[in-house]
């Protein structure tokens, strides 16, 4: 027998041979699926307690809705841009500086962000100034825990927050769309309110980049833009801090920006909102439905003047 002749048992079975394309396809698919599965499980799950006192029992929005309908101008100004450009935000070795009028200045390292404070799940309504809303199961800790650790001095009246500044990588920061880095602020008593949290996750896992990874503010009774994403610096200050949207259009975005259906906005009627996923608009609630927890903060204030 010539060496070019194959033995019967060396010949690929005809049945298998005819399926060769399908086998290659499925092996590619298998590799791909395993990898994408790995990527998904790479987003760490968090351990947390469930909060019942402040959480709403309304139907939450889906993870898909929460992660692909975003306003995060650093990653682009379209609603889907933040999802598309999510990988442009580099969160490796993230540090948050806590400074200003405090006794204890410190830096939160990446691991501190997830471990230093007790995490809990808070299911909050989020009301965007553009008259749409969602219900989101955040994982985070009360900002008050961090304030207690920093020990603000008697001079501290406000907190100023500063977001990431990385124009080389963040597509939105290549143009002067807003006053970069994005800045926001709260009055100290607002920041101490138990509703105010720093969020590090949603749906039980660490925050996706487009939602403000690795750490963001959530102030559920204020319009969404107050809840600054991807925080780099938290400074305790004496004077009311400047905020990016207020610099952009002072007659539209005030420092307080509490959800208020009775105060008209030059762009959107704030009387109603569309819950993402619903067809008909629904009425907007005073302080986004959190009046019992926060109305006392603004007693005696003219809410039309301090919008």
């Amino acid at each position: 027998m010539s060496k070019y002749c194959l033995k019967e048992n060396n010949v690929t079975d005809e049945k298998l041979f005819k399926q060769r394309r399908a086998i290659i396809k499925s092996s590619i698919a298998f590799t791909f699926l395993t990898f994408s599965n790995l990527l998904y499980s790479n987003s760490r799950t968090l351990s947390f307690s469930k909060d019942l006192k402040y959480s709403t029992n309304e139907q939450t929005n889906t993870i898909k809705q929460i992660t692909s309908y975003n306003n995060f101008y650093e990653l682009g100004s379209g609603k889907r841009d933040p999802m598309i450009n999510a990988d442009k935000l580099n969160t490796k070795n993230w540090k948050v500086t806590i400074d200003g009028e405090v006794e204890n200045k410190f830096i939160l390292e990446t691991e501190d962000i997830l471990n230093k404070f007790p995490l809990e799940e808070r299911i909050y309504r989020l009301r965007c100034v553009e008259a749409w809303s969602m219900v989101i199961p955040w994982i985070g800790f009360e900002l008050n825990h961090l304030i207690k650790l920093a020990k603000p001095t008697h001079k501290a009246k406000y907190i100023s927050f500063e977001s990431v500044y990385d124009p080389e990588n963040l597509p939105g920061q290549k143009r002067d769309i807003l006053a970069w880095p994005y800045r926001e602020g709260l009055r100290l008593d607002e920041a101490r309110n138990p509703l105010t949290i720093l969020s590090v996750g949603l749906y039980g896992r660490i925050l996706p980049n487009q939602n403000g990874s690795p750490i963001r503010l959530v102030v559920p009774w204020k319009y969404g833009f107050k809840s600054i994403k991807s925080i780099k610096r938290i400074s305790f200050v004496e004077k009311m801090p400047e905020t990016s949207w207020n610099i952009e259009a002072p007659n539209e975005y005030g420092f307080y920006s509490n959800v208020n259906p009775n105060v008209s906005h030059p762009r959107w009627s704030q009387k109603r909102e569309r819950r993402i996923g619903e067809f008909r608009k629904r009425d907007t609630l005073m302080y986004n439905g959190y009046a019992e927890h926060v109305a006392h903060l603004y007693e005696g204030m003219d809410l039309k003047k301090y919008f």
Binding site: K64, Q65, S68, Y69, K79, R80, W132, R274, I276, F279
Partner: peptide, 10 residues
């Protein structure tokens, strides 16, 4: 398209 979440505004 299941990825358009605010269909009316779109």
């Amino acid at each position: 398209n299941n990825e358009i979440f605010n269909k009316t505004n779109y």
